[in-house]
Design a binder for these strands. Structure first.
Length: 116
RNA sequence: GGAGUUGGCCAGACGAUCGCGGUAUUGUGCAUCUUUGAUGCGGGAUACGGAGGAAAGUCCGGGCUCCAUAGGGCAGGGUGCCAGGUAACGCCUGGGGGGCGCGAGCCUACGGAAAGUGCAGCAGAAAGGAAACCGCCUUUCUUGGACCGCUUAAGGCUGUUUGUUCAGCUCGACGUGGUUUAUGAGGAGGGUAAGGGUGAAAAGGUGCGGUAAGAGCGCACCGCGCGGCUGGUAACAGGCGCGGCGAUGGUAAACCCCACCUGGAGCAAGACCAAAUAGGAAUCCGUUGGCUGCGGCCCGCAGUGGAUUCGGGUAGGUCGCUAGAGGCCAGCGGCGACGCUGGUCCCAGAUGAAUGAUCGUUCACGACAGAACCCGGCUUAUCGGCCGACUCCUCUA
RNA sequence: GCGGGUGUAGCUCAGGGGUAGAGCAUCUCGUUGCCAACGAGAAUGUCGACAGUUCAAAUCUGUUCACCCGCU
């Protein structure tokens, strides 16, 4: 389930994270920005640029994988707003590669997958 | 066994768990109201089904929607061997011509240049009702060479004379006349299109005869044109006769001519519901007309005052949206594309836009790639695999 | 998704069948003590790619690739 309350909805939400991120984690394909919020849960924002990933199918897969990874996060850690950005290297990366990259970068933010 | 041609099919498979979007059924929460029921939204359970052969490029054709029911003329655009198929096509099938290949087979924008206009740089003599540069032939003139005749200075020989001399013969510069038959150079006139050279292209080709040299000048074959005939629906093919071919070169993906086709825009079309502006100001034009629909023009039809500037404002939802020139099977007609008849099936419909992740088994380890109104084609991308038909070569019997 | 447009020198653009140009930039020389400006000269293109038509293609035709613009 991916409810509206778990998403970054407005431009203001996004710009807050862009402007003043508490944590950054990235590699050739991806960049994650995170900022602590006052809410009870994490929120996710996606920015998958057409410039970086030209085909719609590939963009959808990346977004889906990011949501999947977000979904299995442990909820114990302090709640954060997280934005997933693509970088030019994402164009030629395979879906398994993207998945590994997401897992790794989420871990660097101190957010590991819940054991359940 | 090897090499090759061609038609069609498949697009990893199976299972489990989680997740994504749709439809149906069924609970549920919230909101509204015509308040014990409806409608809408959110989320849940169950069941069913969920990308392609190219979904791509947008190169053609059609359906559908609106503009007039899609109308008339001109312009513009497209197609271009013939016949058929089709809703239609620039597509497909069959046939013809041409080209390539030993062959199966493949390729082919393939109407008209004797209706007209244009174009062809450079080179070349000449580039389109052509001309004669070199060359070849011929007539004539001039001038050489060679030969012959005549004449003659000098010379030679013989005779004569003491000698000068004289006579005869011979040779013969120069001059002059003629010939030139395997003759040089030049001028003028004529013939010629064989040959040379230039060019992408030089006005039928090859051979024999013929001629002063040559030439369709004549003949044979091929090519071309015209007219019958035969076969074929036709394109066209075959054969006969005629024309000697200075006529009719090339280019029409140059203008053009001929035949046929062609109105415009596109689902962001368009329809409906709700909200908002609901026409506020200024200037100009006009009411036999103008403007808009309408895409170049005119006619016609319909609607209506119009244009510009300033100021203000809206863009949320539903339908269109998938049952269709549909798929599969069988029979019949047709060489075939395809058509007809019967049976059977329902097979994605999203709107930030759905197919993935994990695990297991297995194989030949998986390419190009993702629907957005729908369909028929073409083109382009593509790992491989399967089936059928055929050709050539080699070997064995 | 639908519609339209553009690819020519390092950059901005002409050229629309006869063998490719302009401006700026670059290089050389002159001028100057040096630089700029100025003057003189030079170099530079598979005309986005592949086929076709033509004697000949940047130009005409088809296919293809890349980029840009408009419509919610």
């Amino acid at each position: 389930m991916f409810r509206p309350s778990q998403r970054l909805l407005t431009a203001a939400d996004y710009s807050q994270v862009f402007k003043d991120p508490d944590h950054k984690a990235g590699q050739k394909e991806l960049l994650l920005l995170a900022r602590h919020n006052d809410l009870a849960q994490h929120r996710l924002g996606l920015a998958v640029a057409k410039k970086h990933v030209p085909t719609a199918v590939k963009r959808n897969i990346i977004k889906r994988l990011a949501r999947e990874q977000f979904r299995v996060l442990a909820q114990e850690t302090p709640a954060m707003d997280i934005v997933v950005l693509t970088r030019p290297g994402a164009r030629d990366a395979s879906s398994t590669h993207i998945k590994e990259a997401l897992k790794k970068q989420f871990a660097r933010l101190g957010l590991s997958a819940s054991p359940s």
